[in-house]
């Protein structure tokens, strides 16, 4: 009964909400469709840049695009072997 009145008076959202939500999601994916090749190049660049400051384990490095609901993130896991001494000294001076 309550359900009936709820429907009668509250103008519930129709299928439009589903359309909008699905569209948003699919567009996030469409717009950021990075090719595996692009991801590999990005990985190489990351290694080069980070290696200037840290000694990293390039074998254990992982770079991925994570997608959750409506947001996307670039997630990198980069194991550090050691910090380069020279860099720290230079940055502190």
């Amino acid at each position: 009964m309550r359900d009936f009145f709820g429907r009668l008076f509250s103008r519930e959202e129709g299928s439009k909400k589903a359309a909008k939500d699905r569209l948003r999601l699919v567009l996030v994916h469409d717009r950021t469709s990075l090719s595996p090749h692009l991801l590999d190049t990005l990985k190489e660049d990351l290694i080069q840049t980070i290696s200037k400051y840290l000694e990293i384990d390039t074998e254990g490095l992982e770079v991925n695009i994570d997608q959750e609901e409506e947001t996307m993130a670039l997630v990198a896991s980069i194991p550090i072997r050691s910090v380069r001494r020279g860099v720290v000294a230079k940055a502190n001076s």
Binding site: R11, E12, E13, G14, S15, K16, K17, A19, K20, L23, R24, L27
Partner: peptide, 16 residues
């Protein structure tokens, strides 16, 4: 259809 919430309206499309 827009009125009963079964079609995206102009604002929805523009927003997207």
């Amino acid at each position: 259809m827009v009125k009963r919430g079964d079609m995206m309206d102009i604002d929805d499309v523009i927003e997207i």
